[in-house]
Design a protein around this nucleic acid. Structure first.
Lengths: 232, 232
DNA sequence: CTCACCATGAGACATCCGTCACAGCGCCAA
DNA sequence: TTGGCGCTGTGACGGATGTCTCATGGTGAG
């Protein structure tokens, strides 16, 4: 049980929470270990609770009537998932699925709300998380509405490079464990277009080398500048 | 001064706030009356405070490098605007401009945060508002990513009809005070495309009559079904 | 080894839609 | 009345991109 408290404390939102409150939460929440490809919730489901990702990866996405998918976010360890709809009682606006074997903590809605109401730290952490997510969505809207595929890909790679890349000379090395298909859903396009965009970025010297999932990229600033200038 | 308290109470977020708290807020906030086309804040600005719309209309939008605009939201009386970025200290992700003569209340960041922290009602109202906004953004992403222009327009009109329309026989009458240009920025397309989409909707019997800004629409359910089925 | 499977690259093609150009119309002021 | 201006409708055109199809290459199981 104190085991669970330690787990909870691992999530940024709960990091500095009072021990007693944490214990109470721990009593109510459910640890889950699931494999890759496990659907946590679907768009339209009534919102029952929130997940915290301790390990693994969760992809949040929308599906179109004809089966295409648009990824809205990919959350890794330390993030909460689906905390939003708890507060207006509505259904989930998107679906969530693990894209890697994952350890999660499930916190039922009532408990989360209680924590939110009683602890201002929790409340403000939640709002900060929502803010970040919102910012990301606004970015995504702009990207999908304005930029061509090459620019969107450059921006996506820049984001990854910033989070996961390591400098290598005047380039950035990135171990990107994504298929072109996955990248395609993240930028709202088709797999083939990602392939073509790859070629474009290589021609511009922004993508310098590819060997399997290992990429050698131009500095993040260059990628972003290209993305801002919208293709060309 | 008690005048201002009454104004604040007019905003849903503050409706059921304790009188004393409200008075304290009122002492710190600034009523503003501005004309049409007044820019309240720009994307990238440091976030200073939040606005409440008492009267008029505020459009939230992003601008692309080549000048195109994508409207993210249009807020009318009773809504708050720009409450989001207050909480993670970052810059505004979008710009805000009045699209009608408006009466606003400006609440500096510090005051708002205090109210958020001391009053759980405020906190939960803020989170509900963020949730709604988030939901709307997710919807917008899907729409821009998946649907063609006709479907997007149908969805937009359905939204307006739901909020502002009045039944008229087996149709819905809607007084829509928007130019095609404005509609175009709301669904992320060009004015000409809106004109063509109008014609498509008329051909399908979804848009039954247009006289100036007065529209006669098919029932909302039909519009939504068309939009869901993605054009055609 | 070989076959099946999957990720990727590439070409052909149709379609959507952004852009440019221009015409018609209503409205308002001079 | 006339001219200007803003909003709308329409046609032409080209570029971006989704889809279909197939080839290539790597990997793992039998």
């Amino acid at each position: 049980m104190s085991d669970l408290v330690a787990l909870l404390r691992g999530a940024p939102i709960f990091a500095e929470l009072d021990g007693a409150v944490l214990a109470r939460l721990a009593a109510r929440c459910v640890p889950r270990t699931v494999g890759e490809g496990f659907t946590l919730f679907r768009a339209g489901d009534r919102c029952q609770g929130t997940y915290f990702v301790l390990e693994g990866r969760v992809r949040i996405y929308r599906t179109s009537p004809d089966g295409r998918e648009q990824t809205l976010a990919v959350q890794g360890a330390g993030s909460s998932v689906a905390e939003m709809p708890m507060f207006d009682g509505g259904p989930y606006p998107a679906s969530g699925v693990t894209t890697a074997p994952s350890r999660l903590i499930y916190l039922p809605r009532a408990e989360f709300e209680l924590a939110f109401r009683t602890d201002p730290e929790v409340a403000s952490a939640v709002v900060r998380a929502l803010g970040r997510r919102m910012r990301h969505l606004v970015q995504l809207v702009e990207t999908v509405a304005f930029r061509d595929v090459a620019a969107r890909l450059a921006m996506l790679l820049a984001d990854y490079a910033e989070r996961l890349g390591t400098p290598a000379g005047d380039s950035v090395a990135l171990q990107l464990e994504r298929t072109q298909d996955e990248l395609a859903t993240e930028i709202g396009t088709a797999r083939e277009s990602v392939s073509r965009a790859h070629k474009q970025l290589q021609a511009k010297g922004l993508l310098r080398e590819r060997r399997g999932t290992a990429l050698l990229l131009a500095p993040v600033a260059e990628l972003r500048e290209f993305a801002r200038g919208d293709g060309r």
